[in-house]
Design a binder for these strands. Structure first.
Lengths: 211, 211
DNA sequence: TGTTCTATGTAACCTTTGTTACCAAATAAA
DNA sequence: TTTATTTGGTAACAAAGGTTACATAGAACA
């Protein structure tokens, strides 16, 4: 594990901290689709992403979903931190977007290291910073953009996160993540295809040029 | 200032910290409508709210606004903290919702106190926690609620924050804060009046029963 | 007092998005 | 191979919300 740690976090954490992390944490490999956290769960650990990606989703009272943002290499879940500080339940759902490796740090260490290591403190604050900014961007898209623009953003982001211009997602799944309906998404995707920006196939979408 | 400080923060900060805050901070009284921060501004201080309320707004590229949340007594602006840590410009606009008193702490002290005072550390993390949760609630309303529900929430929240069941706001102003149009808001307000939930007057709205 | 400005009410219409229904193609299962 | 299921295409319609236009009432003010 220490190698994985050094590769992803060696440039920002001092050796003593890396050692401590290695001692108390567990290394986990999650297959794509694995549900890491459900709404209402109590939080037991803080994930440090080593590779892959985790998607973070919000749900309303009717069970409708909305994709909030992705966690990637070098990220951690600020939502987790806020939860464990307050001993409250998770407000979000977290699912592996693709095969993912992460290091799970026990929450009790989090506060301890904040006083002990400056680099850890910076990391924690930077995470909050990043997460608040991701949330602002999410708000921007849902408040200010129309569904066609949101769809294009979604396709771009999906391709970036998965490092693949072919998206293996059904129209229904896209509709869930954007909190829309399958028919609307199919309609807009067809329009994008007619414009030569994507190619539609059963169970996958090829991005041609979304610039 | 030390009295104001003790009244609002005495229960959570130790005396030594209260003393330090009093020494390096400035006390400010803002009239309702005062613009405390504009998008693009560099952040010079961290506000500790003593009384009143500050509304925090987001703007898109076309200049359209959206109300994100209110800061009240005991709150601080996490967005400010993230900005000053990263030396970046403000992502939001902050305007006094009503007459407001606050203590402005220089940003350089923020990090220093995090190592020095446990209570300050808790306060900072709690602020992040609160802000992330407010952002989630904001996302919930704009993503999952229709405009009539959002309007009712807005009226309730406005009345709560201002401690007044009479709202002194024009339909146009409400439309800006909800990122809608005046005609739509007038239409929905009229519907609420017909249902006996509010009374409409020129330049003010009286809440009768929104439960 | 008459004039001007601002806030609100309302009708008519348009666009976007969501819903229902049905069909066909692709795939999986029997 | 036949049947069932999943996925996607499309039409027709409904609803929410935005736009334009215009009228009127109250407030401000000359």
């Amino acid at each position: 594990m220490i190698q994985e740690l050094k590769k992803s976090y060696g440039h920002q954490f001092e050796d003593a901290l890396l050692q401590e992390i290695a001692q108390v944490s567990t290394f986990r490999e999650l297959p794509a689709g694995y549900k890491l956290m459900e709404i209402g769960d109590y939080v037991k650990g803080m994930p440090l992403l080593v590779s892959g990606a985790i998607k973070v989703l919000r749900e309303d009272k009717d069970g409708d979903e909305l994709l909030l943002y992705y966690l990637e290499k070098g990220d951690t879940c600020s939502m987790t931190m806020t939860c464990c500080m307050g001993e409250t339940k998770s407000e979000i759902r977290a699912i592996a977007e693709r095969d993912t490796k992460l290091i799970m740090v026990p929450i009790r260490k989090m506060e301890e290291w904040i006083t002990k290591y400056k680099s850890w403190r910076n990391f924690v604050f930077e995470s909050y910073h990043n997460r608040l900014n991701e949330m602002l961007l999410t708000i921007d898209t849902i408040a200010f953009d129309r569904m066609d623009e949101r769809l294009v953003s979604h396709l771009k982001e999906k391709a970036r996160v998965n490092k693949d211009n072919v998206l293996y997602q059904t129209h229904q799944e896209i509709a869930y993540e954007l909190h829309s309906s399958r028919v609307v998404i199919s309609r807009l995707l067809k329009k994008l295809e007619r414009l030569g920006k994507i190619e539609l196939h059963r169970n996958h979408i090829t991005i041609v040029d979304l610039s």
